[in-house]
Structures are given as C-alpha cells and as structure tokens.
C-alpha cells in the first residue's frame, strides 16, 4: 500500500512529503540543510479501523489554549501513548474525549459518534489521574456500584468481579474498606473499576504515577492484554520508558501534536537511541 508521509527536519524544521510503501524504511536527506534521517512506513496489520478521530480539536480556557487544532487518529486494538510535559494538553484531550469538557472548536469522534455523547460512554472506560474511589465503601461495594452504573446484570457482575479481582490481585481484599488499602492497591482497584464493564475504548490518565516499578510492569501487562483482545487503550504519561512500550505515541507540546509514530519510528527518524532524545530533537523540552 502506497502512502505519503509529511516529515519535519529536526534540524531546520523544513517540512517535506515522502512517498513510500508499508514496511519500507527510506533514508531521506533534507533538501535545505542536508540533515539525513530515516522515514519508516509501518507494516500493515489489522489495526486499521479508526476508533478515535480528532479533527482540529481545540480547547481554550479564556485566552489560554490547552489543546490547539489537534488532529489525531487511533486505531482499533492500539496502545496509544499521549506523551508530553505537564501542561501540554494530554489530560485536557482525554477529558474532552470522555465528555468531561466540551471542545471550543473542532470535533472528536469515538466509534463513529461525536462526543460528548452519554450512550457512547457505555463503551468507554476511564481511569482518572485521581484514585477516584469511594473510600468509605469496600472494594466489593465500589465494584458493585460501577457495575450498576454500567447496567451490568447481577450474573455478569459476579463473574466479572472475580475476573477483575484476580486480574489486579485484590481477591483477598474484596470486603476491605478502600480507606484501609495502600496506594498501590487503590490504583489497581481504580483500574479494575475502569475495566469492569469490558469497554471497547479505555482512557487511562497517567495510570502509573506513584506506582512502584514492579506494579508498573504488571499494569503494562494488563494494557497489552487488553489491546490483544481488541480493546483500544489510550494512555497519557510523561515517563519515557513507558512510552517505549506503546504501539504508537503522539508527542504533544503546547496543545499541538509535534510528532507521531511508533517509538522505533521516532528514534529512527531522528537518528537517536532513546525516545527522550528523539523528543528533544523533535522540538520538545525536557520532560521529567
């Protein structure tokens, strides 16, 4: 399949269109400054059904524009990382997609429906940055509450509860009050609450902040398992090592998408070995 990629020279910012076919890696020389880089055309796979589409999405708070004419497409079964420093518009983008904020201009579509849309939310899972649990209820009561919110039947809930509790390793804590759980356990429960109703699309807003490395690895195991089942996972993060585990990342800066592609792509394109260096080359600033 032939495609065309618009790439920006990391050195002189000159933009040029490069034609190529899926699976090809083309070495490109910048016609202006002579910088040499590689352009990767990712191999074609099943992940070609668009699930999330942002078109010129803009969200402004007064004179401050948090998200600035953002165009972005996420495909089915992808693990997409929204990457960027604090204040780059990651969370705002997620909140618009979850219907928590109304866009100022442009539009956001999920599964072919324009957000905000209440009926669409049935198919969406959202894990906010905050733990977002009821501390004075037990683990079971929290899960049961969200099962009710997502109109699950009693049987559905019972089997899903068991699956999720095993998944996040909280089986023993089913009847414990959330206020007695450690931070890591709360994080896992929060994830379970977001995934309980088996959503098609999941938005995870910095799910691994304050999570120890071991648990973080467990989480990534979950995320990849989800995407293998065809669930589309969108994750915001500012950890570069995490971004490396995403299928594709979008680099945001000042509410604009400055680069997008698989981690290898971005590294190849910029001739760097780490994603962090790639991000710096692409015009970002230091993130952590």
């Amino acid at each position: 399949m032939m495609a065309e990629k618009r790439v920006q020279c990391p050195q002189c910012k000159n933009i040029q269109a490069i034609p190529g076919a899926s699976g090809e890696v083309i070495v490109v020389t910048c016609p202006v400054c002579g910088f040499q880089g590689k352009v990767v055309f990712p191999p074609l796979d099943q992940k070609t059904i668009p699930v999330i589409q942002l078109k010129q999405l803009t969200k402004a708070y007064g004179r401050f524009t948090a998200v600035d004419h953002l165009n972005l497409t996420v495909y089915k079964g992808e693990t997409y990382g929204l990457l960027g420093p604090n204040g780059s518009g990651k969370t705002t983008t997620i909140k618009v997609l979850c219907g928590l904020l109304s866009p100022t201009a442009g539009q956001a579509m999920i599964l072919g429906q324009r957000v905000p849309c209440k009926t669409l939310m049935q198919k969406i899972g959202y894990m906010p940055q905050e733990t977002a649990l009821y501390l004075d209820n037990t683990v079971h009561e929290n899960l049961a509450f969200f099962a009710g919110i997502y109109s699950m039947t009693h049987d559905q809930f019972l089997s899903q509860e068991q699956t999720m509790l095993r998944f996040v390793d909280l089986e023993r804590w089913r009847d414990a009050l959330v206020s007695t759980l450690s931070g890591g356990m709360r994080h896992r429960l929060s994830l379970a609450c977001a995934l309980l109703h088996e959503p098609d699309v999941v938005f995870l807003d910095e799910p691994t902040v304050g999570v120890d490395p071991e648990l973080r690895a467990t989480f990534w195991g979950f995320f990849h398992a989800l995407s293998a089942k065809g669930c589309t996972v969108v994750i915001t993060t500012h950890y570069m090592d995490e971004a490396d585990r995403c299928g594709r990342v979008g680099l945001l800066r000042n509410g604009r998408l400055i680069a997008e592609g698989s981690p290898q792509d971005l590294k190849l394109q910029t001739g760097t070995t780490s994603l962090e260096d790639a991000f710096m080359r692409l015009g970002g600033r230091k993130m952590v």
Binding site: K118, Y126, P128, Q129, E130, T131, A132, L135, I149, S151
Partner: peptide, 18 residues
Amino acid sequence: VNERRNGTLQRLLASPAT
C-alpha cells in the same frame, strides 16, 4: 466536595449515568 476532590465525580460524568 469529596466527589469532586477524589475524582469520582469525573468518573461518573464519563459514565453513562446522567
């Protein structure tokens, strides 16, 4: 106040609940 501060309200508003 707790719903807002704990983020549960966000979760609810991003759910099918009206």
